[in-house]
C-alpha cells in the first residue's frame, strides 16, 4: 500500500538532514508501528508523506498504491487515500466541526470524480460514527478542536479518519496526552477501521498504545533511518530496556 524507498529529507530553511534514507513498506491490511527516540525523524516522516511545507526531499521516493505521493499537493494525497492523525490537532475558531467534515468529505469525493454526499446522508453517517467514538452533538457543532480536551481532539481525529475512509492511515503519537480510558476509546476507533484493504502506520513512543492497537510489524527509527525491524516483541523489548541496547547493537 505504502512504499517508501531510500527517502532523504532536509529542512527547507536550514541545511539539516532529517531523514537519511528511509525504507519502509506497509502492506494493505497490516499495522506497522514506528518507535524511536526523540529527534529520530518519526514526525518528519509523517509530515513529508502527507505534504507539509518546509521540507525538501533530496532523494528517494514514496508511493501510495502505486501513485507517486511526493509529486502531489497535500489535498491530492488526501484524496488519493492518505490520512494523517495529527499529534497536535489544530484549533480553527469560527469554522464548525460539521462544516469542516462535510467540506473535507465532499472535496475528496469531487477530486475523485465521485458524487458529493447530500446533507442528509452526511448527517446520518456522521452521527452514527460520532456515536461510536462517544462524540456528542455539541462537539460536532463547536468550532474545529476549539475548547476540546486532549482526548476529545484525538477522538475527533479518529472521527475524521472514519468519515474519510482512507487507504493508508498514519497516526502520529496519537497516544500523547491521553489517559488510559481515552486511549482505549481511540484504539477501539482505530481497530474498528482495520480492514484488509487498509494499511496503518502507528508512530509512538510507548508500548502502551500497541497493547490496544496490535501491530504486525515494529520498526525502530534512529537518526533518520529505520535501524531495526521485527515483530510485536520488539516493542516489548524497547519498553523494558529502552533504546540504548538496540542502538548499541547496531552501532
Amino acid at each position: 500500500m505504502l512504499e517508501i524507498k531510500n527517502l532523504q529529507v532536509k529542512l527547507e530553511e536550514e541545511d539539516k538532514q532529517i531523514l537519511k534514507g528511509v525504507d519502509l513498506t506497509v502492506e494493505a491490511g497490516k499495522v506497522h508501528a514506528i518507535m524511536g527516540p526523540n529527534g529520530s525523524g518519526k514526525s518528519t516522516l509523517s509530515y513529508v508523506l502527507s505534504g507539509k511545507g518546509g521540507y525538501e526531499v533530496t532523494g528517494g521516493d514514496a508511493t501510495l498504491a502505486g501513485e507517486d505521493l511526493l509529486d502531489m499537493e497535500a489535498e491530492e494525497r488526501a484524496a488519493a487515500g492518505l490520512f494523517l492523525a495529527f499529534q497536535y490537532p489544530v484549533e480553527i475558531p469560527g469554522v464548525g466541526n460539521m462544516t469542516f467534515l462535510r467540506t473535507a468529505v465532499n472535496s475528496q469525493r469531487k477530486a475523485r470524480g465521485e458524487e458529493e454526499m447530500s446533507a442528509a446522508d452526511f448527517l446520518k453517517l456522521v452521527r452514527a460514527k460520532a456515536k461510536d467514538l462517544k462524540i456528542d452533538a455539541d462537539m460536532l457543532k463547536r468550532p474545529v478542536n476549539v475548547g476540546f480536551s486532549g482526548g476529545e481532539k484525538k477522538r475527533n481525529e479518529i472521527l475524521q479518519m472514519a468519515m474519510l475512509e482512507p487507504k493508508m492511515c498514519i497516526l502520529d503519537e496519537t497516544d500523547s496526552g491521553l489517559d488510559v480510558d481515552a486511549m482505549k476509546l481511540v484504539a477501539e476507533g482505530v481497530n474498528a477501521l482495520r480492514d484488509e484493504g487498509r494499511g496503518f502506520l502507528v508512530i509512538t513512543h510507548y508500548q502502551r498504545l500497541l497493547d490496544h492497537i496490535k501491530p504486525d510489524v515494529v520498526h525502530i527509527m534512529a537518526a533518520g533511518r529505520i535501524v531495526k525491524t521485527g515483530g510485536p516483541e520488539l516493542a516489548l523489548e524497547v519498553e523494558k530496556n529502552g533504546y540504548a541496547d538496540i542502538l548499541a547493537e547496531i552501532a
Partner: peptide, 15 residues
C-alpha cells in the same frame, strides 16, 4: 496560519 492551512489540506480540502 500555515499549520491550520496544512491541517485543512491534509483532509483533502483544496488550498
Amino acid at each position: 496560519d500555515e499549520d491550520a492551512l496544512f491541517y485543512l489540506q491534509s483532509r483533502g480540502i483544496p488550498h
